[in-house]
Nucleic acid binder design. Structure first.
Lengths: 225, 225
DNA sequence: GCAAAAGTGTTGAGATTACACCCATGC
DNA sequence: GCATGGGTGTAATCTCAACACTTTTGC
C-alpha cells in the first residue's frame, strides 16, 4: 500500500479596489522552472492543517491583517499544471480594503506587487486560468451578496461603495438608482457621521453585517453577461 | 525535502430524479473504521490523473453511462475528516436521467443504492456536509441554468420537466407560468412529436443545448431560501 | 362517463429603468 | 465663482404572480 498520490496545495487570489481599478496581488517566483514569473501566492498544505488555515497562512505572509474575507474558489488538478510534480491546488480568493497594509515579499518570493486585473502579465502555472475564474466569481457574487464589505473600510461613503460596484463588473451605474437599491437591500446602515474632504461632506455608512449575506440583486440580468 | 503532505481524493454525489423524489447514490463501505456505513463513492487521485478524470472514473464504476453532467462542487480538507490519514477531497456532483442503468456495487463496495435526499442516513466521513453543499448548489443552479438536461432523457414532456423543477427546490409551481417562462428562456425546443400514454398525448421537447448554459431566472427570489 | 394529465390568456401589483436639477464644500 | 462630488423624485415600461376552464386520451 505504498502508493503515491498528488499532494494538496493552496493558491490565493487577493483582490483590492484601488481608486478606479480592481487589483490582484502577485508575487515573483524565486526558484524552479517558473523563476522570475509572476504568480498568485501559494504553497503545499502541511499535514494536519486545514485547507482554510493553509490559505490564511499564505495570505498572512503577504499582508499581515486579520478580518479578511476569504472564500474557496475552485480546485485545479491537471497533472501537468506543475511540471515538477503533480499537485492539486485549491484556490481561494481574498478581499482587502484599499487601505490595508502594503504587501511584503517575505523570504519565499523575490517581489510582491499589485496589478490591475485587466492587465495581468502571463503568469506561472495555470494561474491566468485561476485569475479568470476568480474574477468571474467575484463579479457574480457582488451582484447578490454583501461581499463588497471585504473591499471597503468599516465606514465608507455611498460614492466609494458605488465605485466598487462599478469597477468589478466594469460598467457605470446610475447614481440615484444605485443609492435607492443598495439602501433597500438593508445591507448597509447610516452612521450619521460625515466625511469632510475636497467637496460637499458625504454621509458615512457601514455594512450591517461583516459576514457573507445574500441580498436581492443589485444589477440587472443583462449586466452579468 | 522529503516532506509529507495531504493526498488528493475525489468524491462524487450522483443525483437522479425518480418520479417525485430527488435521489442520491450511496455505497456501503467494506473496510476500515467506517465499515458498514453509507457514503458517496470516491477515492484517492492517482498520480498523473486529472481531477475530473478521477471523478469520472469513480462515477463510471457505479453507473456505466457516458454523457453525464459532472461539475466540481467544493473541496473539503479538514485534517480529521478521515481518521486514517489527512486526505483533501474534491467533491463533484453528477446528474443522471432517471432511465439510466442501475447502480452496481463493484468490487470496492458491499452495496450500492439510491436514497431520497430528504432521508439520507448518517454517512461516513463528512459526507452529510457534502450532501448539504451539493443540494444547495443544485438548487441554486437549476434556477438560472439548463442543468436540468442532465436529469432528463433527450425527449421529455413539459410535465416531466416541471416535476424536476418542483422536486429540487421542493415546492409546486404554477403550470401555466412555468410553461410560459421555460419556453421564453429558449433553453428547450419542441420536437413536434407526441408521447402517448394513459392520458392526453403530450408534446415532446428537448434541450437546445446539452451543455451548461445560463438563462434568465425561472424561480422568484424568495424561492431560493 | 370519469379520471388524469395537457393545453391555454389576462389582469393587477410591484419592480426596474431612464432621466435633471440643486447643494455644500475647498480652492 | 467654479469645479467636484453629494443629495433627491417621478413617470413609463416591464416583469411577475395569481388565477379557471376546456381538451384529449385510456380505461
Amino acid at each position: 500500500m505504498r502508493q503515491r498520490h498528488p499532494w494538496a496545495a493552496v493558491d490565493v487570489v487577493i483582490f483590492r479596489v484601488d481608486g478606479r481599478a480592481l487589483e490582484a496581488l502577485l508575487v515573483k517566483i524565486k526558484h524552479g522552472p517558473f523563476r522570475g514569473r509572476w504568480a498568485f501566492p501559494g504553497g503545499l498544505v502541511v499535514l494536519g492543517e486545514a485547507l482554510d488555515e493553509a490559505a490564511r497562512r499564505e495570505l498572512f505572509e503577504k499582508t499581515p491583517i486579520h478580518d479578511v474575507y476569504l472564500e474557496q474558489l475552485f480546485t485545479f488538478g491537471d497533472p501537468d499544471r506543475n511540471p515538477a510534480r503533480h499537485v492539486v491546488s485549491t484556490t481561494y480568493f481574498a478581499l482587502l480594503p484599499a487601505s490595508a497594509a502594503a504587501p511584503r515579499a517575505g523570504t519565499k518570493y523575490a517581489e510582491a506587487g499589485w496589478f490591475n486585473v485587466k492587465r495581468l502579465p502571463v503568469l506561472a502555472y495555470d494561474h491566468n486560468r485561476i485569475a479568470a475564474v476568480a474574477l468571474e466569481r467575484l463579479r457574480a457574487k457582488i451582484a447578490y451578496t454583501n461581499v463588497a464589505y471585504g473591499l471597503l473600510p468599516r465606514a465608507f461613503t455611498l460614492g466609494e461603495l458605488q465605485r466598487v460596484y462599478e469597477v468589478i463588473p466594469g460598467r457605470p451605474l446610475d447614481r440615484r438608482n444605485f443609492r435607492r437599491k443598495i439602501l433597500e437591500t438593508g445591507l448597509i446602515k447610516p452612521l450619521h457621521r460625515y466625511r469632510r474632504g475636497a467637496h460637499r461632506p458625504a454621509a458615512l455608512y457601514a455594512f450591517r453585517e461583516r459576514r457573507l449575506a445574500a441580498a436581492r440583486r443589485i444589477f440587472r440580468w443583462s449586466d452579468l453577461g
